[in-house]
């Protein structure tokens, strides 16, 4: 494992510009210890995956960063400000999309701005733009039940983008999307990370997905959760999306991660 770290470069906490810092976070549910003294830095403008077997607390960590559940100990800082609850600097993309079923695509995408008190014409103009960006132009008047799973998640993504938060939190966003749509989504997400200059925190249980899209992968191990390893792929990040899955480094990292996770799979 030390070889892997040398080859791919371990995260050096000193020279990173962190958008989000997790410091010594613990979370207990009664007797159960979900997270213990977990620390992690999320570099600005990059995508960090939280990867681990189920029950390793990756979604819990994401929701603590979102301010949706309080940590038992430790603190989260975003641009130096302590997190005490949900805030406009973060936007969440949900695993089950969490769309308003009674509202059309336009209202769903602009709902985050609506809650922030932005006027109707202004927020709908912003929403139109992001509906176009995620490739849903022409579906503004459609209702969620008329869309496929992949399209629904595009609505969820557009909603998160339109509030212009610095940090995007994605909780297994593609797990309820079919395989072909997921691949298209992953390619689009790469372009998004490059163009939007936002910090993405991405929870997934798919090793291939994590390696494909991440600038930094944090491997979490369960009971209680801790960061066991941080991997930063280097060679294929700049290449074209089509070539990533053929890169030797991509294949090596996938194998390495599987080797360290296989013992934890029941």
């Amino acid at each position: 494992m030390s070889q892997t770290s040398d080859a791919f470069g371990k995260a050096d906490p000193i020279d990173i510009d962190s958008a989000v810092s997790v410091r010594g976070v613990s979370k207990n549910y009664g007797e159960v210890e979900a997270l213990r003294d977990l620390s992690l830095e999320f570099p600005r403008g990059q995508l960090t995956s939280l990867l681990g077997p189920s029950g390793c607390g990756k979604t819990t960590l994401l929701k603590i960063i979102a301010g949706l559940i309080p940590a038992t100990a430790g603190e989260i800082e975003i641009d130096g400000r302590k997190v005490t609850g949900p805030g406009p600097d973060r936007a969440f993309v949900f695993q089950d999309f969490a769309l308003l079923p009674w509202a059309n695509v336009l209202r769903n995408v602009s709902f985050g701005l609506e809650l922030r008190g932005v006027g109707k014409s202004e927020r709908e103009a912003v929403a139109e733009k992001y509906i176009g960006n995620v490739g849903l132009s022409g579906f503004e008047k459609a209702y969620p039940h008329e869309l496929s799973g992949g399209m629904r998640q595009r609505v969820g993504l557009a909603r998160a983008l339109s509030v212009d938060a610095q940090v995007l939190l994605l909780d297994e966003p593609f797990s309820a999307v079919d395989e072909q749509n997921r691949r298209k989504f992953q390619e689009d997400l790469l372009a998004l990370v490059r163009n939007e200059n936002k910090t993405f925190i991405f929870v997934t249980h798919s090793i291939e997905e994590a390696v494909y899209i991440s600038d930094q992968i944090a491997i979490l191990l369960p009971r209680p959760s801790r960061v066991s390893e941080i991997i930063r792929p280097t060679s294929f990040r700049g290449t074209k999306a089509d070539n990533i899955r053929r890169s030797p480094e991509y294949l090596d990292i996938v194998d390495q991660i599987w080797a360290s996770l296989r013992n934890y799979v029941e």
């Binding site: 949900p86 973060r90 936007a91 969440f92 949900f94 709902f111 985050g112 509030v163």
Partner: peptide
Amino acid sequence: EMARSFGA
């Protein structure tokens, strides 16, 4: 959670 996270 969606309503909370978007600051409702």
